[in-house]
């Protein structure tokens, strides 16, 4: 072991580590004891490390942080809370904090129950259509490279194992992507600006997260207000392509020759179906 190697090993040693469990560190420490230059370097290094640690330990941490964390955690665990309400001082901040937490929890529970009963393709389509026109933050990243988009989606926990129709794979019109949350599930959204400035969005959700999904090989087409939509299932994902574009446009992109399905789930009133 030369001096440079010894310095590298010593520089990552924790205070008080005598190398008992690390033969390389033990060897470097022995060298530091024998070599005056290395010994002096090591002494300065230890002083520096100790001072940095001491300094960083004085960096203030918001005093309210633990209580904020614990208040949030109570919301999560309130259903099995073991607090004894009879011991509470009803006028204390703790009571009001818990009361607020209960309200939040009940809201979340109601929302969750609603979500459970509403996890079907129709509500997915409706909600995605409502989110799509959000121009202020339409995509999180602007990126035209599909491989990079997939990488970004994977990193942000959205479905990324995309099996796209040929026309959408080779389209040079990919603008960017975003990850949305819907009923606790991550949704990948890919934004396309097709020829003629035709803007469409592709939403991808795990098929397991939806009821009444199209059977593999089927294509569902529907239209509501000014928006056309196409949905299909492939490789464990459900894809929803939507935009204020002519229906023929979507047919072009999702291989209309394979279109077999026409029925859209019942809750979707006002929809025109296409064969």
């Amino acid at each position: 072991m030369n001096l440079n190697e010894a310095k590298l090993i010593l520089s990552v040693a924790l205070p008080g580590d005598d190398g008992a469990a690390d033969p390389q560190l033990a060897e470097a420490l022995a060298l530091a004891r024998r070599d005056a230059e290395l010994g002096a370097w090591w002494e300065r290094e230890c002083r520096w490390d100790a001072e940095v640690r001491r300094s960083l330990a004085t960096v203030a941490v918001p005093s309210a942080l633990p209580s904020q964390i614990l208040a949030g955690q109570k919301v999560v665990r309130l259903p099995k809370a073991d607090a004894k309400l009879s011991n509470f001082e009803w006028s204390t901040p703790l009571f009001w904090g818990l009361a607020a937490a209960l309200v939040v929890f009940l809201s979340l529970a109601a929302s969750w129950l609603h979500a459970k009963s509403d996890n079907n393709l129709a509500s997915f389509a409706r909600d995605m259509m409502a989110m799509a026109p959000d121009d202020s933050r339409h995509v999180d990243v602007r990126q035209a490279d599909l491989a990079k988009v997939k990488g970004w989606l994977a990193e942000h926990h959205g479905p990324a194992d995309l099996a796209l129709p040929v026309m959408m794979q080779r389209s040079p019109d990919l603008m960017g992507c975003r990850v949305l949350q819907w009923h606790g599930q991550a949704i990948s959204m890919l934004c396309y600006m097709m020829p003629g400035a035709q803007h469409v969005d592709l939403f991808v959700i795990r098929a397991a997260g939806l009821k009444d999904v199209p059977a593999p090989g089927q294509r569902v087409f529907a239209s509501i207000k000014q928006n056309a939509m196409a949905a299909w299932q492939s490789g464990g994902n459900v894809y929803l392509l939507a935009g204020a574009v002519p229906m023929e446009f979507l047919h072009l992109y999702v291989e209309p020759s394979q279109t077999t399905q026409t029925s859209w789930p019942a809750p979707f009133a006002g929809v025109i179906f296409y064969r």
């Binding site: 002083r47 300094s55 960083l56 330990a57 004085t58 960096v59 203030a60």
Partner: peptide, 11 residues
């Protein structure tokens, strides 16, 4: 430099 250090500076 350690003689002059404080937490804010190091952070």
């Amino acid at each position: 430099p350690e003689k002059l250090m404080d937490g804010a500076t190091v952070m």
